[in-house]
Design a protein around this nucleic acid. Sequence first.
DNA 1: CGGGAATACGTGATATGTCACGTAAGTTGG
DNA 2: CCAACTTACGTGACATATCACGTATTCCCG
Lengths: 162, 162
Amino acid sequence: MTAKRPARGWLDRDEQRAWLAYIRLQLRLSYEINRQLQADHDLSLPDYDVLTALSVAPASCLAVSVLATQLGWERSRLSHHARRMAQRDLVSLDPALADRRVTEVSLTTAGRHALEAAAPGHVDLVHDLFFDGLPAHLRAPFSEALEHIYENILARGTLPRP
Amino acid sequence: MTAKRPARGWLDRDEQRAWLAYIRLQLRLSYEINRQLQADHDLSLPDYDVLTALSVAPASCLAVSVLATQLGWERSRLSHHARRMAQRDLVSLDPALADRRVTEVSLTTAGRHALEAAAPGHVDLVHDLFFDGLPAHLRAPFSEALEHIYENILARGTLPRP
DNA sequence: CGGGAATACGTGATATGTCACGTAAGTTGG
DNA sequence: CCAACTTACGTGACATATCACGTATTCCCG
C-alpha cells in the first residue's frame, strides 16, 4: 500500500500541485513586495523585516543573535546588514552593558519614522496582492496549513527555534 | 459596515494571523532548502530553478526572455546568472538562428546530470519539511488558496504572465 | 526603401548575501 | 586561578542580485 507516500525522491500528483503552487506564488510575491518597498521608500524587504522585528521588541532593542534567530538569518548576515543600516541611521549598534560580547541593535528615531512611513503602503500591497485573491472561506484552513508546516520545519530544520 | 475590510494601511486579526504564518514559513523554508542544495550538490536554489525549468522545456532549451518570465526574474539577473552557470558547464548559451537578438539557454549533459543527482534529495527534503507537516485534509484547500492568490498576483502584479 | 520605435540582451557599478575564519569575553572543571 | 571550551560577533574574500544604461537586431509605416 503505497498510496499515501510515493517512492522516495518523488512527489505524487497532489503534492506536485501544492508544491508548484507554493513555489511560484512565493517567487512572484516576494518580487513584487521587494519592488514596491524599494521604489516607494528606499527600503529592501530585509530592511523592513529588521525594522518590524525591532519595533515590536521591548525598548525597540535586541541582541544580534536574538534578532537573527527571530528573522531566521545567519548571524553574520545580520552583522553586515545591521552595519549598513546603521550607516543609513535606521538603527544603532551598541555594546551591551551586562555582557560585553553582546551587541545590541536598536531602532533609531529615523528608523521608526521610516517604518511608519512605509507600513501603510506595504500593508495595502499585501492586501491587494494577497488577501484580495484569498477567498474568505479558505482563509482559516490556509492559515492552519501554514502553521502546521511551520511547526514541522521548526521541529526538523537546522535553525534554532525563535 | 467595515467588518470585512479594515481601514487602509492595516490588517485585521485573521489577516495578521495568515500573513505572519506565511512570512515566517517562507523565510525558514527557503533557508533550509537553499542550505541543503548548496551543501549536498553545490547548487543554489536559483541554479536548481533554472535547471528544472530547462529540463521540462522542449529540447531543454529556452530563450533568455522566456525563461526569465517563467521564473519570475528580471532578464538581466538571468543574463548574469546564466553566464555563471555556463562557466560551470551547467548550461550553454547560443545565439538563436531565427532571430539574432535572441540568446538561447540550453541544458548541457553535465547540467542534466547535476539536476538528476540533486532532485531526489531535494524532493525528500520537501517531503520532510513541507508535506509531513501538512495534514491530508488541508492539502486541497491549501493548494486552492495558493492558486487563487497566484492568479490575483498575475492579474495585478507588474511582472508579465508566464 | 529608410528612419524611428520596439525588442532582446549584455555590462559595469554597486548593493547585498554567504562562507570560513579570527578575536574577545564569559564559563567551568581541576 | 588558570587552561580548555563555549558563546557572540566582526571581517574579508567571494558569490550573487539589482539598477541604469548601451548595443544590436527587428519591426513597422509612410
